[in-house]
């Protein structure tokens, strides 16, 4: 793609101070690595996750608006359909205006994987992997790993069932062991390799046990049959495509240490 059209970039930088910074607090917290047993699909059962940094909050509407101002190729009118389907930023009033009913400090949603990936890259970050996200999300307020805390799991399931949580302000749920907010309770979040979840019966290759998430298939191959919250997350990941834009799906960025 031609870079000529970005000749105004320097003006953009000069003008940055004029508009002021976004009000949403930013920042990352380190997550200590560890072993994880993913719900699906590993021969060995366990995976090692290295230390990494993760955004404290999901990316907000106003932060994403700033991004779109800086990178006009991600304006609604400019985003290419191979990267974002017709629902991209569909609730915005216009290319550079949030919807009137939208809370600037609630998580951005209706963004595609490509858009989320580009956003993180522009902050010199990246999307977390499924394993990284799961590692950070299994922390409760007090424990780094609350997988076996049934009341924590119950709370997560309840939050997944609650409608319209995408319009809540970031930071309105609990702060977890790592100092990260809103891992559960606001929106689903994109991960870099969400399409590593092989479900929906597409994988009909011979000799692959990891068939799908339906009925018996789910019970046969899953590592923890009682982790309903994880089933819901993995099912969600399995149902989406990278150019989808969904009202209850946002993202946050990560960084390697």
């Amino acid at each position: 793609m031609s870079r000529l059209k970005y000749i105004f970039a320097c003006f953009g930088l000069l003008a940055f101070s004029l508009t002021g910074y976004s009000q949403t607090p930013t920042g990352m917290q380190p997550i200590k690595g560890g072993t994880l047993i993913p719900l699906y699909g590993l021969d060995s059962g366990k995976v090692w996750v290295d230390d990494f940094l993760l955004d404290i909050y999901p990316v907000t509407n106003e932060q994403y608006l700033d991004f779109v101002k800086k990178y006009p190729e991600w304006k609604r009118a400019n985003a290419k359909s191979i990267f974002a389907d017709g629902n991209y930023l569909s609730e915005w009033q216009s290319d550079l205006q949030l919807g009137t009913h939208m809370n600037p400090k609630s998580p951005i949603s209706n963004v595609s994987w490509f858009a989320a990936k580009a956003y993180c890259a522009c902050q010199e970050k990246r999307l977390p992997s499924v394993d990284e996200w799961e590692l950070a999300a299994r922390a409760s307020e007090t424990k780094a790993n609350a997988e076996n805390d049934s009341s924590f799991n119950t709370r997560i399931i309840e939050s997944y069932e609650t409608p319209n949580t995408y319009s809540k302000t970031v930071g309105s749920t609990y702060k977890n062991f790592w100092g990260i907010y809103d891992m559960h309770g606001l929106v689903w979040e994109w991960t870099s390799d969400f399409n590593s979840v092989l479900i929906s019966g597409e994988s009909r290759q011979d000799g692959e046990a990891d068939r799908n998430l339906f009925c018996a298939g789910a019970a046969i191959s899953a590592s923890n049959l009682r982790d309903y919250a994880a089933f819901m997350r993995y099912a969600f990941r399995g149902s989406i495509k990278a150019n989808y834009n969904i009202k209850n799906l946002g993202f946050r960025c990560a960084k390697s240490k």
Binding site: G41, L42, F114, N195, S196, L198, Q205, E208, K241
Partner: peptide, 26 residues
């Protein structure tokens, strides 16, 4: 990263399941 992106353009899914093997859609 680019391979992952390309797979997403094809709506193709894959996962590394061991040091040598992947499961993937055909």
């Amino acid at each position: 990263d680019d391979v992952r992106e390309f797979s997403n353009v094809l709506s193709m899914k894959y996962k590394k399941i061991s040091p040598i093997d992947f499961s993937h859609t055909n």
